[in-house]
Write a protein that binds this DNA or RNA. Structure first.
Lengths: 333, 333
DNA sequence: ATAAAAGGTGCAAACGATTGCGAAATGCTT
DNA sequence: AAGCATTTCGCAATCGTTTGCACCTTTTAT
């Protein structure tokens, strides 16, 4: 029962609740003298406003939701960390949710967000999400949603992504510049738009700039699968001089194969990855990678969220923005 | 304005708000016929209770807070993922907070938890936390707090930890069994109780079981520092046959040194780590490690939280529980 | 037939804060 | 000293839900 409320303060001071409320908000109606008294007592009594009451009254929650397929992921955890930082600065709390790539859980999570009347939602779609109706329901409730990384294909929504097209091109350009001739490129889930974009731009850049390069494309389901693919190419087909990895998972799988075969990087095999930047530095020489920063994407997503919120009422804008990427040279290419 | 409330339902049905409320909660006072009508309309109107209103009325939030020094960490992210899973099952939401090892932020975060009237808090102390008063304030407000991983030294609090003593012993035992004779053991921040426990038990086990072993102890501040230390020992002092790493960070640093020197594992140098299990598998051969599972710790912490909550009122119990650990053999020892 | 006991429902207060509006108190003008 | 503006504050409704209590029907017992 140590909870201090406006009422308690008002009783002690013999003032009305509304006066206390206004004094604490520095309302011009209240005299400096009163304000001072109130603020001092509030501090002494450790007054902390009840968020539920405020939310109920103002219909405004100071809470954001953030849903990812999984928290344990180099990209997402830095994204989360980034958004959390900004949220705190703005006085918002963050409710974190994992969908585990399960559509039922995803919907449950959305419901939780609605029940908590979150002000906004940062959402990364789970792999299998086709039906966007739950998300559209958020829109009806005026819960601003920013989609990131894995985003719906329909238009008219707020989305932030890595500039996947340029990511593919940067990677291809780096390989061509290094004069590599026989490339094994391993991509992830072929159904995701992110994979499609990266692969298409990667391929097209080669077609455009270097006809002399041999390009083998494979898709890996997980780390083990990437290892298998790499092992097969590296043992059977000894001509491959470079392996391109679309993600950290694939890089990890490929590196297992390379270490197992005790191949020297880059003299015997070159490696290039698309990565958040952590995994590539675990190896020696560090792997050269095209940076896709969850941290930067988080900052962008947050910025966009704040714009959505400030742009309140007027017209319903929807942006699609991207984070540009760059090549970070290690010693593997 | 698509928000359905009890009031709206009551108006449509010509019943009172209280009847709707009770019908939806399956209260025995309400007739089956009425219940059916209400439930159906609620579904049709997509009724979703307003969490703020419920919290305000019941003084009970269905929200947990979870604070870690940083989200981007193999151990913490799996801990978070684990707690999130359980929370969802129980209908709780999770507010995630990072302290960034900054005491001011830590206090801000605690304040956020208080304002949101979280039901419980999972807290991992930041490195510099000496003053526990903010945490004790939580206790006054009857916010159940479970400390994990890095916990306060004072007693009478709920704590869950890895069984750090046995972790040290398991590691020492594995090294002795492998008949290693010249060990470099690198630990982390020497001020943390977790470091002290692990080091002490590690040391004592050697003193007890193997007097013939040479043991060099060092402390690394970060990844780079670990690399430096390892490089120095491995180049100057060629007799070291095993490196023990207290954490993933240190393992990463050490592996950089080993890869740089192109030393063969385990023929030229053996490695043993304490780890969550992810990093060790990135290398070939996989590193042998003593498992400290953030996932398991999360499950334990959650269980303890639920016990705290159910044990409501009666007596104020405080438990200190631990997760046992085990050796996971790779090929590095 | 009548009183008592269920059964079904509604009233109204409460949770803690915000806010439009009105009222009292003060100061100023002439 | 009377009138008016300004400053300072309180009243009361409201947000959506829960819940103790009272009320009105039925049914059941006598």
């Amino acid at each position: 029962m140590t909870n201090t409320t406006l009422k308690k303060i008002s009783e002690v001071l013999g003032l009305s609740i509304s006066t206390i409320s206004r004094a604490l908000k520095n309302h011009p109606d209240i005299s400096e003298k009163t304000k001072k008294k109130v603020v001092e007592l509030a501090k002494a009594l450790d007054y902390e406003p009840n968020a539920s009451a405020i939310q109920l009254r103002t219909q405004h929650s100071k809470i954001f939701g953030l849903m990812v397929p999984t928290i344990s992921n180099f990209f997402y955890d830095s994204f989360i960390a980034s958004v959390e930082e900004e949220s705190r600065k703005e006085g918002y709390s963050l409710i974190i949710l994992q969908s585990s790539n399960n559509i039922d859980i995803e919907n449950d999570n959305l419901k939780l967000c609605r029940q908590n009347r979150v002000t906004g939602l940062f959402a990364c779609l789970s792999t299998g999400t086709k039906d966007m109706s739950s998300f559209l329901k958020m829109k009806e409730l005026e819960i601003k949603t920013i989609f990131f990384d894995i985003v719906p294909e329909i238009t008219g929504l707020n989305k932030v992504c890595m500039a996947d097209t340029s990511v593919g091109e940067i990677a291809a350009e780096a390989i061509i510049e290094a004069k590599k001739k026989d490339i094994l490129a391993i991509f992830g889930n072929a159904n995701l738009s992110i994979t499609k974009k990266r692969e298409l731009s990667f391929r097209q850049f080669f077609k455009l700039k270097s006809t002399a390069t041999k390009l083998s494309i494979e898709y890996a389901l997980d780390i083990e699968n990437a290892t298998e693919i790499a092992l097969e190419y590296l043992t059977k087909n000894k001509t491959v001089d470079t392996i391109f990895c679309m993600s950290d998972e694939i890089l990890i799988g490929v590196m297992k194969a390379i270490q197992k075969l005790k191949l020297n990087i880059p003299s015997e095999i070159s490696v290039l990855a698309i990565s958040n930047g952590f995994i590539p530095t675990l190896f020696y020489p560090p792997i050269t990678y095209v940076e896709t920063s969850g941290y930067k994407l988080g900052k962008l997503a947050f910025k966009q969220m704040m714009e959505c919120l400030s742009n309140n009422g007027t017209q319903e804008l929807a942006f699609e923005t991207t984070v540009e990427s760059k090549l970070v040279k290690g010693g593997s290419l």
